[in-house]
Each structure stands twice: as C-alpha cells, then as structure tokens.
Design a protein around this nucleic acid. Structure first.
Lengths: 343, 343
DNA sequence: TTGTAGGCGTTATCAG
DNA sequence: CTGATAACGCCTACAA
C-alpha cells in the first residue's frame, strides 16, 4: 500500500504539502503542485479513506434505508439517489428494511451511533413514526416519498392527496358515480393521503361515501392481494363501475380479477392506478395512472440531504414534485354496458 | 461522542480490556466482562468504525457493481446479497455501472485502490473483460450471473447454455421446426450461451440453422426493442412458428408485437422467455420461461465472497445453481392454424 | 510557501 | 488476567 509519505518522498516535499495539494487547501507553488501530482499519478496513490474519515470525522457515505427494492418504484428512486451522490463524491450504503415495520427505532439508533454515514435517506416509514424526529434534529436525515405526518423532518414527495383527488375526479367526469378504491393495509402516509384524496373527490361530486367500496390490499402492494381486494369489491351486491388503486401493481391485479369475473376493462369496469411504472404500457388495456417522478424524487432527496449536511442556510425542508395524470385505456366513459349502472 | 476511553473509565478498567471484551479476544474475568458490558450498554457505546477500520485494515464493506437495478432480475439478486451480507456483519456499498460497458478497468482500478471495501461482487460484465482477472488474483472478487468466459475468477451462475437448449428442445417437442430467437446485442456471456444453447437444440433436432431467424434486441433488454426485434422476425417471408427470448421482458415485447400483427399467442405463435420475473403471470398468456433463482444467486455470491475474504481453504470458485423450465401458456403445440406451417 | 508534530479512536503487542 | 503504549494513515495547527 502506497501512503502519503511515499508520495511526499517521491516528490521531494513534506506530507503536509501533498495533503494540501490533494485537498486543495492552502497555497502551493504551481511548480511543487505539479511535482506532487506527478508523483501521485506515478505511484497511483489513493488516500486511505479510513484514515481520512477518522481524522475528518466524516465518511462521505450516505445510508439509504429502503424496503424491497424489487419494486420498480423504489429501484428508480434508488437510481436517482445513486447518480447524484456519486457526482457529489458520496458513496451509497444500502440497507434493506424489508417493510416499513422493520424501520424501528433501535435500528436507526444503532445505525446512527455507528456513524458509518454522514447522512441518511429513508424511502419508507409509517406515517406515525414520530420518534424519527429526534434523530432528524441532530443528524442529517431526509425522507423520500413517504414521511412522518406533521413532523419537522425534511422530506420530498408528491402531493398524494391532490393526485388522488384529481384522478378520482377524472373518473367522476367519465360518468362514474359508484367508485371503489383499493388501498393498502400499511401505515404509509401515501396510502392515507390517497384515500383522503379519493374521499375529497367524492365529496366534491356530491357522492356519499360508502365504506363497502373501500378495499384493502396487502402492505406490500402485491399483485395477488390486489386481485383479492378486487374480488371483494366486484362480487358485492352493488359493485362499483370504476376502481381507483393506490399502486399500478394493484391496478393490474384488479384488471386480472375483473377478467376472471368476465368483466372487460374498460368496457365493463374502469380502473386507474398510481406510479406509472414501466409495465403499465406492456399490455392492453394500457393503464390510466398517475405519473410519479421517481428518479427525480431520488435526485431531489440526495440534493436536499447534501444541503443539510453542509448546513446550507436556505436548505429546503419540504418539497413536492409535480405529478401528472396520464390518460390511457383502462378508464373510459361509463356506458349502459357498464356494470352497476343502477344509479 | 462516547469513546472506548469513556467506557473504560465508567467500568473502572483499561481501554485494552474493553477492547478485549468487545472483540472477544483473550481471556477476561466474567466479573470484569460484566462490568464492561454494563458500561457499554449504559453509555450506549458504539465503536468508531473509521478508527477500527484504520487499525484492522478492513472495512467490513462489500462493493456491489450493478447495472440498472430497476430490472427486477438485478433487484432480486441484490436482495439476496444484502440479506446475507448483513448476517455476516457486512454493509453493502452499491455502485451503479449503468451498463456493462461502464464497468471499465479504470473504474475498478480506482475502486480497488481506494480500498473502501473488503471485496467486490459484479453483477454484469462483458464476457471478454479479461482484464478483470488481474484484480481477482489479488483481491476478493466474485462474479454473479455474468462472468468472464474462461477466466480464473470465482463466479456463480446458472447453466445458461443447457437451459436454453432445454427450452428450445421443448419448443421442438411441441412440433415447431422453424424457431426464432430474440437475443440481446450486448456482450454478456449469458446472451452468447443462450444463443449457443438454442443452436445446440436445433442441431440435436436435425434442423438447419438459419441466421435470418436470429434477431437482436437492445443491450438492456428493453421492451420496445423486443417488439422491434419481433417485427423483423415475424414480417419476414418465412416467419417462425415459435420464438425463444433471452429475457422475459423481451418475450413480453414479442407477444405485444405479435398482437399488433394480428397473431395470437400461443395459437398463432409460441413464445418462451427467460428469468421468470414477477410479471410473467400478471397477464395472459402466462409466460413459459426458465426460472432463474436470482435471490439464491445473490445469496450464494455473498457466501462465496465471504469464503474468499477469509481465505478459507476449500472455497468454491465455480458454482452453477439449478434452473427450472416452467411450462405455462405462451408456448403450445404447433397446429394447422399456426403460421408458417409450410415445413 | 513549506515543514514538523500531535492527535483522531481502535487494536495489538508487550510487560506485569 | 490486565494495563500501558505504540502503531494504523491522514489532516491541520503552529512554526519557520
């Protein structure tokens, strides 16, 4: 292993000078600098990060707490974080939290104490994880997509409530009045907000809420649970003519379940999803859904974190990226053929 | 920050003793050990990793070089690696290589020099990246899924050639004799081996190879490129009655393209994929494909790497996990209705 | 502008 | 079995 001392000797200067050149701190004569750089290159010297970190008390590492990253939503966010962090000179340590319940206080406490990282980004948490606040107050922490409701923790997300409201309003505008929702049994703020948005739209349209139109899929948005939830909705006495889902996979499950029941989307049933992941346009009917800028969310979270690490004065603490409703094939005008056109 | 010295004082012992207790090295009286552990708990002390790493010259970090992890294949592998590494006491640093060409020598060289990690796992590389061998000889490195052909680098994968041969043989057994392949334009060994396996099966069946039945999709297996490749195949003068694809996404693209051409799978065309990712059973026709144990591949690669880091004598260097062909709906008996039943 | 030297928090060697 | 102390490689006052 070649160390700074070797470089110093090779360049005929002191270690301090080498360090100054490498860290670009303090004046160094152009001539000496050149000699140092030449030596660095010739010996292909790379500073020992452990030593540097010990000395500077930083790690240049960002910790990402992510639940199952086989979900394309999270993998896109991840890609955004990784790209930005690399440009900023940070490495990304990834920690699998499986689901939001695995993100418990003892885990964060130990991660925090170990201070292996300069900051942390959480991709999922329950909306009532208030204990996170105490960490955010003494440690750079930003929440991406999911965040703790009403807490003073920097976060970046989309306006889930408005997006859901707009989507459901769109269904209303297509003539649907009996509209169901498939949400998730988790405690994510996004799930709650999307349910709220759904109710907002109903109220706006003067439609009475009906709890029998609210179905819950599994906490991890599994395709199978989406199918299951759809069955309870569609096999009821007075089934909906449209269903809004809090995730695309769930929507796909609903479409599959409908098919099994002999219902064709969108003719017999309208379906809308959320996220706009890749496979929304791999099969017909192409999914009407809400496009969430996952990659940008990832980028933004890292940028925010960086500002907080640097303690930049004007650092943002609450950012909402614009969403977009994309109209495709799975939601259509309610017709006589549509089921449950009794009202 | 509470340091080892604080613990020592609190427990009334020397730092050496605290260290011994924590690292379980050397004898310590049960009584003193208890006092130390109590102090550690009370002060909620966590050793400073930078200092420890500097001293022990290790990082307890594994570097993962992964291409676009929004591909469910890679994310499952990743999950396997992360789970095992955590159990082994390692953190996983993830480095995005975008595509295999971004994994160039200068990158690995610098990563290697920085020695931020104790070992490295590559998820993708070109089959002719022989230069990797020189790193593998002096640094713990294992290749997962993709590896350099004929190089002395520990790797774990599946037998791609045999899997492809078996799948194509299955198509043959269904009565197909004009069988196309959609492979990828990348330089992955898996693509090459699957093409070889395809040719093996043809030869075994006494079918003359026909280069016009070989179509190339983009390097990253994109859905769109699968559709495009399918068009060149299906719009030819003498189109195939069955198509074998080197990835599920590609197969989905082929099915979509077929649909656009008025061809129904499997009645007018049989299609087989590779990987068995989640959405193979989200839509009809359910995909006939090769199930690759991604998660297990990830687990296995980390286990292998661990053995190599520890320089365990009998460490494995070449492992192939069993695959399984899963028969579903997209491939069926060739009938008169099937296109190109001229032969 | 450059060099010297102390210390970051641990572990490991050596005495006791 | 335990304690004192010298590294590990780097950065940064402080001096020159």
């Amino acid at each position: 292993m070649v160390k700074i001392e070797d470089v110093a000797r090779a360049a005929g200067v002191s270690v301090a000078t080498v360090s100054r050149v490498l860290n670009e701190t303090g004046r160094v004569l152009p001539d000496t600098e050149a000699r140092v750089r030449e030596a660095v290159a010739r010996l292909s010297y790379e500073p020992n990060l452990s030593a540097r970190n010990l000395r500077k008390n930083e790690s240049r590492i960002i910790l990402i707490l992510a639940p199952n990253f086989s979900n394309p939503y999270y993998s896109n966010v991840l890609a955004g974080i990784c790209d930005v962090s690399r440009n900023l000179g940070y490495s990304t340590l990834i920690y699998n939290t499986y689901d939001s319940d695995a993100l418990d206080e003892s885990l964060v406490e130990s991660l925090f104490q170990k201070n292996r990282a300069d900051g942390m980004i959480t991709l999922a948490c329950n909306r009532d994880d208030r204990w996170l606040e105490s960490y955010a107050s003494r440690y750079p922490l930003v929440q991406c997509s999911e965040y703790v409701e009403g807490a003073q923790i920097p976060h970046i997300s989309v306006d889930n409530r408005a997006a859901a409201r707009d989507t459901v309003s769109h269904l209303v505008s297509l003539g649907h009045r009996r509209i169901g929702i498939v949400t998730s049994a988790n405690r994510y703020l996004s799930s709650a907000d999307r349910l709220r948005g759904y109710r907002d739209a109903l109220e706006e349209a003067g439609i009475d809420p009906d709890d029998s139109l609210v179905a819950y899929a599994s906490a991890d948005y599994s395709f199978a649970s989406g199918k299951q939830a759809a069955r309870t909705l569609l096999e009821a006495a007075d089934p909906p003519s449209a269903v809004f889902c809090v995730s695309d996979i769930l929507a796909l499950g609903v479409i599959a379940a409908a098919g099994k029941l002999g219902l064709q989307v969108p003719w017999d049933l309208s379906v809308a999803g959320f996220d706009d992941v890749d496979y929304t346009t791999m099969f017909h009917p192409y999914l009407t859904t809400v496009a969430v800028p996952c990659y940008e969310l990832g980028r933004g979270s890292m940028l925010m974190l960086y500002d907080h690490i640097q303690q930049k004065p004007g650092a943002q603490s609450e950012v909402y990226l614009p969403h977009k409703i994309v109209l495709r094939e799975s939601a259509a005008q309610k017709t006589d053929r549509t089921r449950s056109n009794t009202d």
